[in-house]
């Protein structure tokens, strides 16, 4: 099993008028070839910023990469110049976005947009690139691609547009695909189709996928390995079956309790009390402490941030006496 991406101790912060926001604070994870690594967390937990910073897409200023490394092949993505990153983006690492309604340019034909990475990175002629684009659209299950390729994005439904985005991302056969909540904006039946598509293509092409989502049901469906993020840090990281069988961290457990499908009918839905902490002034110590139940809160670390420990082989969790539940 070869590692495609190895992120170590990534730190990204935003220097704003209201102080320094530590959006990502010491995150490490690996992505294996042919596997899907999930990053799960609430809004504002830093999961998107983690991935944007890998491609140099974090606006700087106010953003700043404070430290860490991201080994992709034999290069460190965080140390590349904009020019070098441009050569990697869209050819070796591609990205798909949350909202397929706005991530296609309404003024350009779908074919032009799908063919764009090929024209840019492989220097293909227009007719060559369009031929490949038709194949790419067929591959993602768009019926009648010879005709559809001449249409504009507004003539496609949401699910079809997300397929177009996937075709566009994979047309250059990248080694790594970053999917930033690719199914959040779609309704459930379409969601399933798009997830299946991503999984199929990944198996066939053997690419590595980083899958960002806040939906644990989606995680269980597509991911091989899961990183749970909270307040810019990893609270738990584990192979997917292990995580669902034995969640160790209080936050992961709370997330699982909040899945509506797993709750009993007629009872009020469970929600995690409180709000995610303000990343501009994090409490010292365990970041989940303010949202813990009172008796556990007393046990949480207050003086230092809990380090990740390996609870069982391959399963890591933050070692906070209040939050970590050992066997």
């Amino acid at each position: 099993m070869s590692t495609v991406l190895d992120v170590q101790d990534l730190k990204v912060s935003f220097h704003t008028r209201n102080g320094v926001v530590r959006a990502v604070d010491g995150v490490s994870f690996k992505v294996e070839k042919g596997k899907t690594t999930g990053i799960v967390g609430e809004s504002g937990s830093g999961k998107s910023v983690t991935c944007y910073s890998l491609l140099g897409l974090v606006p700087m200023p106010p953003g700043r990469i404070e430290g860490g490394s991201a080994k992709f092949g034999d290069v460190d993505l965080l140390k590349l110049s904009e020019k070098e990153l441009q050569r990697i983006r869209g050819s070796r690492i591609s990205m798909i976005f949350q909202d397929p309604m706005t991530s296609l340019n309404p003024w350009l034909r779908v074919g032009t947009q799908v063919a764009e990475p090929l024209r840019l990175h492989e220097g293909l002629s227009k007719s060559e690139a369009w031929k490949r684009a038709v194949e790419a659209l067929r591959e993602v299950g768009i019926p009648d691609p010879e005709k559809r390729i001449h249409q504009y994005p507004h003539e496609f439904s949401g699910g079809m547009r997300q397929r177009v985005m996937i075709a566009m991302a994979l047309i250059t056969r990248p080694e790594l695909l970053i999917a930033d909540e690719p199914t959040t904006a779609l309704d459930v039946t379409i969601q399933k189709q798009v997830l299946d598509l991503i999984r199929d293509l990944q198996k066939r092409l053997g690419i590595a996928v980083v899958f960002i989502t806040h939906d644990l049901a989606v995680v269980s469906e597509v991911c091989d390995y899961v990183n749970v993020m909270y307040a810019g840090r990893l609270v738990e990281a584990s192979p997917v079956q292990e995580l669902f069988a034995r969640p160790r961290h209080a936050y992961t457990q709370a997330l699982m309790r909040s899945i509506p499908a797993l709750q009993r009918k007629g009872e009020p839905l469970y929600t995690i009390p409180g709000l995610p902490p303000d990343l501009a002034n994090l409490p010292s110590g365990c970041a989940f402490r303010p949202r813990q139940t009172p008796e556990r809160q007393a046990l949480c670390l207050t003086d230092r941030q809990p380090p990740l420990v390996e609870v069982s082989p391959g399963h890591w969790a933050q070692d906070c006496p209040g939050c970590l539940i050992r066997d």
Binding site: L55, L57, L85, Q86, R87, I88, R89, G90, S91, S94, M95, F97, Q98, D99, T102, S103, L104, N105, P106, W107, L108, E116, P117, L120, H121, M165, M168
Partner: peptide, 23 residues
Amino acid sequence: EFVEAARSLGLSTPAILIRHIIP
């Protein structure tokens, strides 16, 4: 988002301006 998407495809700033913004 399509501007972000264009950046993630590896387009340079002038290319994004000419191809995606000005039209």
